[in-house]
Design a protein around this nucleic acid. Sequence first.
DNA 1: TATAGCATGTAATTAGTTACATGATTAA
DNA 2: TTAATCATGTAACTAATTACATGCTATA
Lengths: 181, 181
Amino acid sequence: MELSKTAYVILGMLGLGKSTGYDIKALVDVSTRFFWAASYGQIYPELKRLEALGFIAAVQEPEDGRRRKAYRLTDEGRRALRDWLNSSDELHTELRHEGVLKFFFADALELDEQLALVRRIRAHHEAVARQLREIQAVKEGEDADDRFPGLTLAWGIEYQERLAEWCAVTERQLREELARA
Amino acid sequence: MELSKTAYVILGMLGLGKSTGYDIKALVDVSTRFFWAASYGQIYPELKRLEALGFIAAVQEPEDGRRRKAYRLTDEGRRALRDWLNSSDELHTELRHEGVLKFFFADALELDEQLALVRRIRAHHEAVARQLREIQAVKEGEDADDRFPGLTLAWGIEYQERLAEWCAVTERQLREELARA
DNA sequence: TATAGCATGTAATTAGTTACATGATTAA
DNA sequence: TTAATCATGTAACTAATTACATGCTATA
């Protein structure tokens, strides 16, 4: 792998019209962070690296007041982004889900505690779903020229709601068992 | 947080009857790694730490031939495990999904490339689902005294299949657009 | 005039993987 | 006898977060 995944986040965000590290981070925080997080500690050094490699170039800004460093994709950068998007390399996927981990070990708990655990997992997914719906409400106003960010957001909401629904089903089963006992 | 999440993976696995670092790793590789991975580089040092803290204790084995270090949960370790399972602390969840990340940036692609991308994402989830079904088939034979590992596996299969199904729906839409064009 | 937001950056730390070294035992 | 598996462990590396330092600008 030539570039890090974070590098592609940056190339992609520049492709979507963002230009500064700050802007990129702001958009990451309401979009990709739900499936690919990135912090300032990665973004700023990566911007320098990508510039050195010729994938992005600094844009000279009128330097009026506020000091900011705007970048744009170079042709090479745009090519690198498309090559990555089209690449058939194994897709890196990784999940760390403490709720599922606890569920896996839940035989160590009493029935009522198991039920409480699943409730907490559901509450978590419902909270994230709410958060995503808020983001969606904010974006609703803006008319975007891009289609896939919105589709991804819709997917995220459905994903979180399905997980919550699965919890609800499991809760129902545990409640029935608790009633029978 | 007193203990790392990996520490709880170890406590939980000892609770399920595993006793050595090797055994724990073997079970992790066909179970928790899909939602919480752990490597030897974490497991062995963590076993020492947990022993020093008194959460686990080394079991003296007959030391017949093969050198192995078996551990068991202490009462304190069992309590720590249950406390964690029952804790209402924020559940750590984190997803890194290169497929969704590419999808987010897919406006940079042509329609046919977008379709190919979603196909690749679907193939990925189908492959993981197959892998999980194989694990399930192997486990089918063994009669487990624990219930939640099997429930978690069933959840994992459904989760992967739903993601694949979502891809299939999206592919259908893109195919229709491609046909209209 | 003060505070929220814009903006860039880095040092220290934590988490985690990879790759290797070592050696015994079992089954083909 | 040789390959697979059992078994423990660590060093080097990579990825990523956290927390901080710095300073400007707009607005209440």
